[in-house]
Simulated scan of single mutants.
Amino acid sequence: MPDKAPAWVVPVMRAGYAARGAVYIIVGGLSLSAAIYGGQAQGTTDALSTLRDEPWGIALLWAIAIGMMAYMVWRLIDAAMDLECEGSDAKGLAARAGQAITGLIHGAIGASLAATAMGAGSQGGGAQTATQKLMAMPWGPYLVMVVGIVTIGAGFYYGYKGIAETYKADIRVTDLTQKLNPAMKAGFIAEGVVVAIIGGLIFFAGLNHNPGDAGGVGEALSTLRAAPYGAILMGVIAAGLVGFGIENLVEARYRIVPRHSGEDVMTFARRAKLKAEGKLREATA
């Protein structure tokens, strides 16, 4: 494993986070509008497919699709080369496996968006289709339940990252990133809620032997809406998803790759460490 990451990884990473940020801002914005004015919450691909009829919409779809592919490449390279210094122990390998899986999921979304841009129509129902294929395998329902439990765990992890603010570790300290931190924090918590609900839907699909019970972002938001005070809950989480989009745009601009940037860049994590050691004034002088 090389000590330094190749320079080309950085622009690929930035393109990926920028596309991811655009996705969540669009999905969150449309869901927030549905919560306020009425209407059906839409999943990721369905929401983005509405761009086709807008001026420059197809070009924007292609840009987001390519960006999502870039995010996949970034995460796969990140996991393979351990660009974030996760390590090779059990905890590190689990984190790197999560990076790779996250990348593949976003790559699939990118491929779906590219098909939409080419006029193939919306590729909705992805979660249900994947669940149906998995359920057809030996021990399929149990595998689906395991995937659901893992997804619920991922949701709790996102929520923990938001509450503990661990997402700031590799982000540069600037006036802007400090001002946007409340939106970033809320974004991770909201993403955690949505992912955990998706995991619950997948789990019950396996438990009930019914792939139709599974669902993605649109179904998760609809589940929230069906709860007491559902429109308010859905609106709060939708606003949080916009915050998660903002967080990704911040990462697109201010995130570093530890194995590329070295240890001297003033990130939130380094600032906290220096402050704890009483060296912050010296470092910033």
Rank of each mutant, 00 (worst) to 15 (best):
V147M: 12
L143K: 13
T102P: 03
F156W: 12
R75S: 09
L61F: 02
L134G: 05
V73N: 02
P141W: 06
L51I: 00
V144M: 04
A111S: 14
V144F: 01
I109H: 03
K91F: 03
Q123R: 10
L83E: 14
T174N: 05
A80P: 04
T116R: 02
I64L: 02
A117L: 03
Y142L: 14
L104E: 04
G121R: 01
K91P: 01
I58T: 15
M118F: 11
G153Y: 04
T177A: 07
T131G: 05
G57D: 04
A100F: 01
G140A: 13
T50H: 14
Q99I: 10
Y167W: 12
V150H: 00
Q99K: 15
Q123V: 01
E54L: 15
M135E: 12
A41D: 14
Q99N: 15
L176F: 10
Y167G: 02
L60E: 01
R96W: 04
M81N: 12
D82R: 07
E86A: 15
I109G: 02
G153W: 03
G148L: 05
M145D: 07
L134F: 08
L48Y: 03
T102C: 14
G124I: 06
Y158E: 05
A136V: 02
I163W: 14
I64M: 06
A120M: 12
